[in-house]
Design a protein around this nucleic acid. Structure first.
Lengths: 243, 243
DNA sequence: TATTATTGTCTCCTTTTGAGACAATAAACA
DNA sequence: TGTTTATTGTCTCAAAAGGAGACAATAATA
C-alpha cells in the first residue's frame, strides 16, 4: 500500500487541495506539576505564539484532519478529542499577522495569497497524558512546548479566546463525562485524580466527598498500593474501567 | 443610509462573495399542541426536505449570517440561538441531491458549479415562540412549515443527524440554562412550562417537584390568574425575570 | 349546594452532599 | 523497639435536594 504523503499546507503556494476559508485549531491539555498546561507553537523569528492548527484536505473528514494533525504534533494516535466551537467572526482575522509569519519563513506572499484570506476555524480540545508526549513543531514554527494556563504568552488573533472557551467547555463536560482520567497515566492515586479535577474546575474539592463520589460511580478499579517512601500510609492505585 | 441588498446565493452562478466550502444549517424549534416541532423547507418539484440554511458572505460574521437567515425565514429578530456543532464528514455531501434541486429550479449547473462542491456546515439551534411566526420559504423552496419531531419526512444529506444532535444538545443544556421559556409566549402557566420541559426531555415529570424546583430558582414572576372557563381552580400566569 | 378537575402547597421519606472525625499505616525518629 | 508524623480509607452526623403522594383551595357545572 502506498503511503500517503501529507504536504504541509504552508509550503504550498496555491493552497490547492485544501478547503478554502476553513481551518482548525486544537487546545491540547496536559497535566504536570499539579497544573493544567496546553501546547503552544512559536513561529520562527517572530515571537508569535499560536495554537496548533491546520487545514482540511478536500478528501478528508474534518475530524480526521484534526486527529491527523494531533498525531503529527504529539505522536499519539488514540486521543480524547472533542469539537466544541466554530469561530467565525470576520474581525478575528488579521492578514498582517499571517504575512509576518510567512515572511519570517522566507515566503513572500502575494496580497491574494490564500493564507492571507479570511478563515473560519473549528476548535477542538484534546486531553492527553503529559508523560507520553514529545511535542514536535511544524515547518513554520521552531517550538511546540507546554505552557501553564496561568502564564500563557500573548497569543495571535483570537487564540486566547479559543483557549478560554475550551476550558469552559471542559468544565461543563466534567460532570457528564469521565474525562479527567485522560490527563493521567493509566494508574493513578485518588489524590492525583482529585488534583486534576481541581485544576480544571479552578477550585478545591473536599477530599472525602470526592473519594466517595468517585468510588460510588463504579468506574474505578483498585490495584496495589503505591509506596512513595514517605512517612505515611500508602495510597492505592486506580485505573478506569474500560467499556 | 443605503439598504444592503442580500442576494440569494442560489441565484448567483459563481458563488462569489461567499465563503467557499462553508454553509450553515439551523434547527428551529417551536412548540404547539404539546409537541416540539421544527421548521423544514421543501424544494420545488423535488419532494426533498431540508433544514433552513445558507451561506456566509465574505464580509459577514458567521453568527450574524445565521441570525440574518433566521430573520428571513421567521421575521423574528431577537432569537435564542446557539451554535452546537460543525459537521464536516466528507461523505455527508452528495452532489446529485444539490443538482436535482438546482435543475428543478431551472438552473442547469456545470459539473464544477460551486454549489455542487463539498461543504462543511455549522449547525445552530434556535428556540422561538411558535405563535409569533409566519415562516417564509426562500427562492429555491416552495414551503417552510412546521413538522412534529415525531413525524419528520425524509431529510436530505445528513440533516436527520443534525436534528438529532440538536435535540441532544438542547437536552443537555436544559439544566444549565433556563432555556425552556423561549418556546412560550411571555406569560404562561406552570403546566405549559412543564409540558415544554417534558417534550424536550422526552419523559414525564412530577408536577409538584417541577413546580417546587422552578419556583425555587427565583427566576419566575407571578402575575394574575388565568381563567380558562373550565370547572376547576385557575392557574397563575408566570413570566421569566429579565437580567 | 354538591360535584369535578386542576392547582398551589405541604408532608414524609429517601438520596445526595457538606464537613469533619477517626482509626490505620508507612516511614522517620528517638 | 516504641513514638511521632503525614496521609489515607472510611465512617458519622447534619444539611440540602429530590421523589412520591396527600390535601385543602377554587372556578365552573350540574
Amino acid at each position: 500500500m502506498k503511503k500517503k504523503i501529507k504536504l504541509n499546507p504552508a509550503i504550498r503556494a496555491d493552497g490547492k487541495g485544501f478547503l478554502k476559508n476553513l481551518a482548525y485549531d486544537s487546545v491540547i491539555f496536559g497535566f504536570s506539576d499539579g497544573q493544567l498546561k496546553i501546547l503552544l507553537m512559536e513561529y520562527h523569528n517572530t515571537g508569535l505564539f499560536a495554537l496548533p492548527g491546520g487545514f482540511i484536505q478536500e478528501d478528508e473528514d474534518l475530524n480526521e484532519a484534526v486527529k491527523e494533525g494531533l498525531k503529527e504534533r504529539t505522536g499519539l494516535d488514540d486521543i480524547f478529542l472533542e469539537q466544541y466551537y466554530a469561530f467565525g467572526d470576520r474581525r478575528r482575522f488579521d492578514a498582517s499577522v499571517l504575512k509576518k509569519i510567512l515572511l519570517a519563513n522566507g515566503i513572500k506572499p502575494d496580497p491574494d495569497h490564500w493564507m492571507l484570506g479570511r478563515f473560519v476555524t473549528v476548535a477542538y480540545y484534546a486531553l492527553i497524558n503529559y508523560k507520553n508526549v514529545q511535542p514536535k513543531p511544524d515547518v513554520l514554527s521552531d517550538s511546540c512546548t507546554w505552557y501553564s494556563l496561568n502564564e500563557l504568552p500573548l497569543l495571535i488573533l483570537d487564540h486566547k479566546e479559543i483557549v478560554e472557551k475550551a476550558l469552559n467547555t471542559l468544565r461543563h463536560n466534567l460532570d457528564r463525562k469521565v474525562v479527567g482520567g485522560n490527563l493521567l497515566p493509566q494508574k493513578f492515586t485518588m489524590n492525583e485524580l482529585q488534583k486534576v479535577y481541581e485544576s480544571i474546575l479552578g477550585q478545591e474539592l473536599r477530599r472525602s466527598t470526592f473519594q466517595r463520589k468517585m468510588l460510588g460511580m463504579k468506574i474505578l478499579r483498585r490495584h496495589q498500593k503505591q509506596f512513595s517512601g514517605k512517612a505515611h500510609k500508602a495510597p492505592y492505585l486506580y485505573s478506569f474501567l474500560k467499556r
